[in-house]
Amino acid sequence: MRWLRAAAVALLGALGLARGAGRRERVVQPGEPAPRSELVVAALLLGAAACAVAFCVFYATDSLGHQTQLLGLSLGGALALLSAALIVTGKRLVVEEELEEDYPEPESPDEQEQVTAIVRESARPLTRKRLLAGAAGVAGTALGAALITPALSLGPALDTESLYDAPWRRGTRLVGERGTPYRAAGIETGTFYTAFPEGADPEELGSPVVVVRLDPAALALPAERARWAPDGIVAYSKVCTHAGCAVAIYRKPLFAPAEPRPALVCPCHYSTFDPAAGGKVLFGPAGRALPQLPLEIDATGQLRAAGNFSGPVGPSFWGVRTRRPRST
């Protein structure tokens, strides 16, 4: 009962407001009533409500709660119907009047003048402007530097030696993902193997190497690496020298035409390296050969590193070619 009375009062108030507005000059031009469009809008709004409720029901129903399609359809549908209701409102129910007005003044010269005067005149009593400006500049720069300094703790910015780290040394065994050592006899031609240094963190950039077996006669390694490929088995860093992705593709045509020749390819930007020629770049953007890992076969037939890589592992940086990798 109380609600009814309140509603009646509100209605009368609204009517009074409307009448009051009628006596004054109108701000918004009167529009054509469109009762049918009102019905359309109401129907669309109710449809949106129904879709929204459906979303809640789908969510709450155990068998449907994980149906992403149903959830998306119902929620998206509710929003789409709401959008339709709003657009019909905009097109049919509200007044579409075109008004005109002046653009704002492009500038306020008086105010500009005053601001300039305030700043100038406030500074007038100062006799040593240059000295003060210089001192303020020095203070500002120094304080800026002081405030930025703690950011150096984010990383070893001043010590970039760690970029040369690679966990290989003479005698390190090549092991698979699960730690089983690779045997030279198990390396077949036509496929490639990923190996890691035994006991090291496989997630370091210096860890993963690709191992392939090539025809020893086809090898064209630099002279000083003649002994790095026992039985034609070669190993290279698996991390591309261009952008650090894994060189995860071995291009090795298995049937005629058996061209082009075997190559290690990175799927990120298609840098292509020649495993027979010391990792030389054949194609793609890499600017530096793939670092080669010297290999040896121990008495039990297992593959071991005969030293560290021929060059630093991973993407290049200023001065990268000046140093050899550092064993960790």
Binding site: G72, G76, L82, S83, A85, L86, I87, L93, V94
Partner: peptide
């Protein structure tokens, strides 16, 4: 005049995104 159009666009953008997200 502009408000319902603009809000309608908001709802439409959200609708398209949720439909894409769901489907």
């Amino acid at each position: 005049a502009q408000a319902p159009r603009s809000l309608g666009l908001l709802a439409a953008v959200a609708a398209v995104l949720f439909l894409l997200g769901g489907l």
